[in-house]
């Protein structure tokens, strides 16, 4: 499975959230759609400490990775508790193809976050594994949309393969602010990754429109 859907993160997907306000955040990882679940009693914790010194912001923000995988039949996030400084970013991902699609949903006194409802200073990335044209939409109902064209690089000899592998380390950014996503159309090669950096939005998802067809038909 390599579907484009921030509501169900899988191998090849990442969700990152920047924490600009100090406080304690609880979160859950859930294999269900989960948007209506409360994260207040979540078993995982992020503690955001204020920046030290006179500056309100840490001089350099850091990234902290949380791995999500299945253990004993349950989805677990490791580490369960993450302590970060204000303005740091936490990134969730799974290294295991067997991990089912999951969502990360958290909340604290200073705000909430969700991979299925990207709102403020959140990032969703997806590595595209198959050729095709992907119309992405917001499954939560806004008019945000865009198009990703994924092409195959023709590989005839070893050098072509090396060139292709080299392209994989280059990501493509789509910047979302309010109701606008720029650029609206990007063209990439198989295996390349697109990042949606959501600076401020009304809780959007990044979802392949084909995944919503069934609901629309009903």
């Amino acid at each position: 499975m390599n579907s484009l859907d921030s509501r169900f993160l899988r191998l090849g997907d990442c969700f990152a959230q920047k924490f600009s306000k100090a406080g304690t955040y609880k979160y859950i990882v859930t294999a269900g759609a989960g948007s209506c679940l409360s994260a207040a009693e979540g078993e995982y914790t992020i503690v955001v400490t204020p920046a030290k010194g006179k500056e309100k912001k840490a001089p350099e923000s850091s990234q902290h990775n949380v791995v999500v995988r299945v253990k004993d039949g349950n989805l677990v996030a490791e580490p369960a508790r993450t302590e970060i400084s204000m303005s740091d970013t936490v990134l969730w991902h799974t290294p295991d193809a067997a991990t089912p699609g999951f969502a990360v949903i958290g909340e604290g006194k200073e705000g909430s976050f969700s991979s299925g409802a990207l709102a403020v200073e959140a990032v969703y990335s997806h590595a595209f594994g198959s050729v095709g044209t992907y119309q992405w939409v917001d499954a939560n109902g806004s008019n945000l949309r865009g198009e990703i064209v994924v092409e195959e690089m023709e590989i005839k000899e070893r050098n072509d393969c090396l060139k292709w592998i080299d392209t994989l380390s280059k990501g493509t950014l789509i910047h979302v602010v309010g109701g606008k996503a720029e650029p609206s159309k990007v063209k990439i090669l198989t295996g390349q990754t697109v990042f949606w950096a959501v600076e401020k939005a009304a809780g959007i998802s990044i979802t392949d429109s084909r995944l919503l067809v069934r609901r629309a038909v009903r």
Partner: peptide, 14 residues
């Protein structure tokens, strides 16, 4: 992959 983010220095996928 590391990429500059408008509201953060940069972000890196594993």
């Amino acid at each position: 992959i590391c990429i500059p983010i408008p509201f953060d220095g940069s972000i890196c996928t594993p």
